[in-house]
Simulated scan of single mutants.
Amino acid sequence: MTALAGTHALVTGAGRGIGAAIAARLAAEGARVTLLGRTRDTLEHTAQQLAAKHPDSVAGVVCCDVTDAGAFAAAVQAMPRVDVLVNNAGQATSAPALRTSDALWAQMLAVNLTAPFTCTRAVLPSMLDAGWGRVVTIASTAALRGYPYVAAYAAAKHGVLGFTRALALELATKGVTVNAVCPGFTDTELLHESIANIMQRTGRSETEARATLAALNPQQRFVTPDDVAHVVIGLCSPAAGSLTGLAIPVSGGEVM
């Protein structure tokens, strides 16, 4: 038996990158996993890979935008009780503060702050009924420090950390833990977009742009999706009942 056998886990933004790595680790620990995201083809491809390695591990594939609270709540109602929620879906768009439009500000908050709140709110009643649950939100080192040109993103990630800490205390006696994992620059498609922005803005080559970001990590490398997934699995374990309200950086020492 593995640690999460008999549980149902829901991962948002599960089609690729960190979300796909987390889904794979959850499946390896015995959970049945529902993959949720906006792109069905990507989700189904990931689900096929997961099922090939861990038969019967895929509970479902749900195409849904996490910023549509009503659609997400309806999806939750149609699936088995959620024991583990991983709020992984996120978006990062950079702009100088004076060029950050109202629309960009609202979008960053909608995806990175409001969606984790509404998604968590949708699954909490069943967790409380069961007296057990795990909520893990993928934040960022931008929840713990500032970075230039991402004021809206950093504000949203700081906000989600406040939500995590407040909810952890609210649920401290209910058997439900609430935590955040804060990766540094991670080798995903979001990183590739950041590199492209640096290249466009500064005229640097891809190699130079990658080196600029990697240098922020004292280990001189990018975090991998698996690095993040291993920490998430630890927080989801039944043995992690005393771990709540945490913001765990996965950043090679960039943030301590």
Rank of each mutant, 00 (worst) to 15 (best):
A71Q: 11
T177N: 03
A14F: 06
M1Y: 08
P238K: 07
G241M: 06
P183F: 04
D68Y: 12
T67H: 09
P238H: 05
G252W: 02
A75M: 11
C182N: 09
G252L: 04
I138S: 03
P96R: 13
G146Q: 01
M256T: 11
G184K: 02
A9R: 10
V181C: 09
C182V: 02
K174D: 12
P183I: 05
L113F: 07
A27V: 02
L161E: 09
G13N: 12
K157W: 01
E208Q: 15
L213N: 08
A240M: 05
G175L: 03
A14E: 13
L169R: 15
L35Q: 03
P80W: 08
L36T: 04
P80Q: 12
T173C: 00
C64Q: 15
D68G: 11
H158V: 00
M256K: 13
P183K: 04
T46M: 13
A240E: 04
V223L: 01
T224H: 05
H192N: 14
D56G: 03
A142Q: 01
A239H: 12
L109S: 05
A168F: 02
S251Q: 05
F222S: 11
A9C: 12
T186E: 12
I198M: 11
L4R: 12
F185L: 12
P125G: 04
N217I: 01
T244Q: 07
A151K: 03
T67V: 15
R25Q: 14
L235E: 02
H8P: 09
G146D: 06
L43P: 04
I138E: 06
R25I: 05
A196S: 15
P55S: 09
A52G: 15
H8Y: 13
H45R: 15
I195G: 08
L167C: 10
A172T: 02
R134P: 06
A139S: 15
T137V: 05
C236N: 04
V223A: 10
D41E: 15
A14W: 05
I18N: 00
A155T: 12
G146T: 04
A28D: 14
L10T: 04
V228C: 02
L169D: 14
V62G: 04
V135A: 02
T212D: 13
A23F: 03
V250S: 01
R204E: 10
Q91T: 11
N179Q: 07
S94F: 07
V33L: 08
R99F: 14
R38T: 13
C182E: 08
S140T: 06
V176F: 05
G159T: 06
A24V: 07
L43I: 06
A9K: 07
T7R: 15
R99V: 02
T186G: 08
T212I: 05
G241A: 03
K53M: 00
